[in-house]
């Protein structure tokens, strides 16, 4: 029960989309594969929510033990409770009178600015790293720098002011040398991922059994 059932379930669930792909109009596609697509949306929803249980456990533990920074755990739990309540007992979007539901209001004025600002800090660190770490020490680094400079000049309006050919050169690099290298990476990674998929499908790898 503990090992055989999950292995059988995983093998069945993994082969269904593949069989349905090769026999698109067969009963297996109609009865199982399409149902599985619809079901998976729901199961994925439950799966994504799993992390929240751990987050609440960790922060409650911190508050109970009065560990260092526990006050921030209180802030996390309170803001979590407020946002979750707005979602559970309210709706999203705009009311008929044009005002926003609390769920969307909090998203727009708290979540969105915070997420955007956190990521925008990276602009400063990119500049700092460019000054401190981008060193032309060998042939590889020189090519990296040349590629970077052409793209940086070619992608800003200022580039065309230097010379009209700069944006075209940037586009050529993107379409040919860059696309070739990216294609090599895509094919290589896809071969690896496909072979890993096959190992799971035939039961050699069993990530769903965890450590047990």
């Amino acid at each position: 029960m503990k090992r055989q059932v999950p292995i059988m379930l995983a093998i069945t669930a993994s082969f269904l989309p593949v069989i349905a792909f090769f026999f698109p109009n067969a009963w297996i596609n109609e009865w199982f594969n399409r149902k599985l697509d619809e079901w998976m949306v729901i199961i994925a929803s439950f799966a994504f929510l799993l992390g929240i249980v751990s987050m609440v456990q960790v922060n409650l533990h911190k508050v109970r033990r009065r560990q260092k920074g526990w006050i921030f755990s209180v802030i996390i739990l309170v803001s979590f409770a407020i946002m979750a309540s707005c979602g559970l007992f309210g709706a999203q979007g705009e009311r008929e009178n044009g005002t926003l539901y609390p769920f969307t209001w909090i998203f727009q004025f708290i979540y969105a600015p915070m997420q955007a600002t956190m990521f925008s800090l990276l602009a400063f660190y990119v500049a700092s790293a460019s000054y401190r770490a981008f060193r032309v020490k060998n042939m590889e680094a020189s090519l990296l720098l040349i590629g970077a400079l052409i793209i940086m000049f070619g992608r800003i309006p200022f580039g065309a002011l230097i010379h009209p050919v700069v944006p075209d050169l940037a586009e050529w690099i993107m379409r040919f040398p860059n696309a070739a290298a990216q294609r090599g990476i895509i094919i290589g990674a896809a071969l690896g991922a496909a072979s890993m998929s096959i190992r799971v499908m035939v039961g050699i790898e069993r990530p769903y059994l965890g450590k047990s």
């Binding site: 992390g51 929240i52 987050m55 802030i75 996390i76 739990l77 309170v78 803001s79 979590f80 409770a81 407020i82 946002m83 979750a84 309540s85 707005c86 979602g87 769920f103 909090i106 998203f107 708290i110 979540y111 915070m114 997420q115 956190m118």
Partner: peptide, 8 residues
Amino acid sequence: FVGVSFGY
């Protein structure tokens, strides 16, 4: 932000 993200 962390709390709101999970609640969201």
